[in-house]
Amino acid sequence: MKTIILFVTAFTLSVLTLSAQRIKGSDTVLPLSQQEAETYLKQNPTASITVTGGGSGVGIAALLSGTTDIAQSSRKIKFDEREKLKAAGKAAKEIIIAYDALAVVIHPDNKVDGLTREQLADIFMGKITNWKEVGGTDLRIVPYSRETSSGTYEFFKESVMKNKNYMNGIMSMPATGAIIQSVSQTKGSIGYVGLAYLNTSVKALKISYDGGKSYTEPSVANAKNESYPIVRPLYYYYEAKSEATVKPFVDYVLSSAGQLIVSEIGFITVR
């Protein structure tokens, strides 16, 4: 009994004194941060890190209210979020920890192999509605999108649709897994998922950002040599003042051991 009490007090004390680091935000970055934290803690048993999700916006809001030390984000901090931080007397430091490529997926029976950015934008804006308009068979196109709260939704809108809005009444799925499931069982479907989620039940399209001159297949190698265009950086944001406390962990993530975990999880390394 005594030992338990001792252990508990020692534990709480260590948690309090070592100023536990908190990481919060994007669900896309979540598995990466968890894995990084786990291995980091193995090497530094005295440190303490808690990782939680909730969405990129939630993480940055938590940085603003001081309830997290690092905000993980799958999108760049927005202009007004930076302004709010500035108004609260905080300066956010930005670190890119990895890259994530988005793959556009269709039903495996679909004969279409590649699409241009313009065609993709028109499909998701509802201007192209049949596969025969882009060289496929006479079949209605069924676009699947993520929910508006997802960072993936925002990034696709920014990169592919150049900030135009999605068509009214687009099908929106609550998770990446649901998109894969729906795309694999709907003939005319098209959707977008993180590269790490690709599997054989769906077909990934080649994408062209130069109007159809060259099409590139989504793969880690192509994303790394920058020939695949739909790639987004994944960020850590932290307050400049707390740099000393978070630096060891951030450095670990950027080290070769940390970047090995990045590629294991299916993201693209920074270097």
């Binding site: 909730g54 969405g55 916006g57 939630v58 929910e147 508006t148 709260s149 997802s150 009214n168 009444g169 687009i170 099908m171 929106s172 609550p174």
Partner: peptide
């Protein structure tokens, strides 16, 4: 899909689903 429902065999969006999917962000 947030469209006016015309038939039973079209995608629809309900109020609880909307709140659950969007309130977090």
């Amino acid at each position: 899909a947030a469209v006016m429902p015309h038939s039973l065999f079209e995608s629809v969006r309900t109020i609880p689903a909307t709140i659950a999917a969007e309130l977090g962000e």
